[in-house]
Amino acid sequence: MKEKLKELRERAIAQIEAAQDPEKLNEIRVAFLGKKGELKNIMKGMKDLSPEERPQFGQMVNDAREAIEKRIEEVGRAAEKRLMEKRLAAETIDVTLPGKRTQAGHLHPNSIALRELEKIFIGMGYEVVDGPEIEYDYYNFEALNIPDNHPAKDEQDTFYINDKILLRTQTSSVQIRMMEQGHLPIRMIAPGRVFRSDEVDATHSPSFHQVEGLVIDKGLTLADLKGTLDTFAKELFGEETKVKFRPHHFPFTEPSAEMDVSCFKCGGKGCRFCKGEGWIEILGCGMVHPHVLEMAGIDPKEYSGFAFGIGLERIALLKYEIDDMRLLYENDIRFLKQF
């Protein structure tokens, strides 16, 4: 009987080794280990053994069972692995075929530029606020030190609704509204639409966007204005950007300046982009005029402030090298998708 068991064990192992796939292995498992399998069959002969031999033989049967099971499992795992490798090989794809993309929309270049500005100024503690686009003459001009018949009023080519109401020509009007609220100190930027009666062409639009900035606090200086705008320029155009402040005139700031940044295309050497100048004019700024503070109910002896105005389209056109302003208002999807 022991011989028979040994032969059975060897035959089973041999068959397992020869088997290639899990199905065959399962057949082998049934044939040898199943309820009516050979091992069960051989067990039937136990009753013919002496009581002393029985435990020993039982142990041998168990050993054989374990050996067969272990081998089936091992060979089975290898077979499965082979099968999987075969399947995976068959599933090989051409990875250079085009990707399938989600069709998210694209923000307008103006909005992208504005997001950048907002991020920079919010980081410096500014609140982003709004004011009306149809505005009283008072907020757009008079309170900004531009009384009736001031030449600057004519220069701005204003759209009027009537004597007192107009389409704002500058977001500076929001300065006055914020100052009037009287919550000091103020750190704000006010982005928004402004309107001037310019005919449409590659560099002009009767409707465009400005971002106004205003800071009112005790002891603010022109040096603070320079430092703030220098930080802004470096954040927006890169760490190596240089700024240049040129004296200028705005009725609502004194002293006033225009700020140039070193050309971010050529780094200041002069190129087609900066028309060989090496510098690009980017914004107007200055210390809030004491008369403007007074009109808004702020004592210029106690508080000072600075303000700046940035043309959003100008930033967008420069940053994205858009050569025709009309593209911004045409809304061709092929244009918008590039941003």
């Binding site: 907002e118 980081g123 609140e127 982003v128 002891g219 200086t221 040096a223 430092g227």
Partner: peptide, 14 residues
């Protein structure tokens, strides 16, 4: 070039 030294304000969108 200096930065304003006044009290800190929280930057935010309206």
């Amino acid at each position: 070039m200096t930065l304003p030294s006044g009290e800190a304000t929280a930057g935010k969108l309206s």
